Amino acid sequence: MMTQCPRGPLAYLHSIGVAHRDAFRDNFLVQWHPESLSPSQLTVTRPRVILNDFETAIRFDEDVPSAGRVCVGLPLSESFPDPAKYTRPVPAEVASGQPYDPFKLDVWQFAQSFRNFKARIALLHLRYTLK
C-alpha cells in the first residue's frame, strides 16, 4: 500500500491535472487480501488501493501551465469552510498565505501521515522508519 498510493492513485490524478489536497492515509482504501501480508507467501497481485473523499480536490485544465497550477490558503471546501476547525498538519508553504503547488501538498500530506507509522511486520517497520 505504501508504494502503491503515490505511484497509483496520486500519480494518476496528478497526470490528469487533479490535486486531491487531503491525501492523508485515512483517505486511501485498500482492498483486503490476507495473503498479501504474509512474508513467506508469494502473491501474484497486490491489493487494489483507492483514494476517496474529493471534497477539497481541485482540477486544473490542460492549458493551464504548471506555474499557474497553484492554490492559496488551507484546503477547505463548502462542506468544511471554517479554517479555525481545520486540524490536519499544514506545511509552511500553505500556512504562509502565499501561492503553493497543490500537487506537492498531496505528496507532503501522504508522507506526513506515515510519520509515526508502526508496521506489524518487523522488516517493513525497519525499512520505512530508517529512511
Rank of each mutant, 00 (worst) to 15 (best):
E78I: 12
R88P: 08
A23V: 08
P6L: 12
A111C: 12
P9C: 08
V107N: 02
R127V: 00
V94I: 13
M1Y: 13
N116W: 04
P6D: 07
D22V: 06
G68F: 05
P34Y: 11
F24D: 01
I50A: 14
M2L: 14
Q109C: 12
T45W: 06
K85G: 09
A11D: 14
F80G: 00
D26P: 09
L105V: 07
L124Y: 04
I121M: 00
I16Y: 06
L76N: 05
F103N: 05
A92T: 13
Q109R: 03
L105I: 10
R127H: 03
Q41W: 03
K131P: 03
D106R: 03
D61A: 15
F110N: 05
P65I: 14
P6Q: 04
V70A: 05
E35C: 01
P75E: 09
P9L: 06
N52W: 03
C71S: 14
Q31P: 01
L74E: 11
S113F: 00
A119P: 00
K118W: 00
L76A: 07
E35M: 06
H125W: 04
S38N: 14
A67T: 15
L123A: 15
A95K: 07
P81W: 01
A84V: 07
I121S: 01
D106C: 05
E35G: 05
A23Q: 07
L105H: 11
I121C: 01
D63V: 14
W32Q: 13
L126R: 15
Y128R: 08
E93Y: 05
V49H: 02
Y100K: 02
H20C: 06
E78G: 13
I58M: 08
F24H: 09
V94F: 02
L130M: 10
L123D: 14
P47C: 06
P65D: 11
R59D: 02
T45I: 14
G17A: 11
F60Q: 10
I50P: 01
W32L: 13
R46Y: 05
F117Y: 14
G97I: 12
K118L: 01
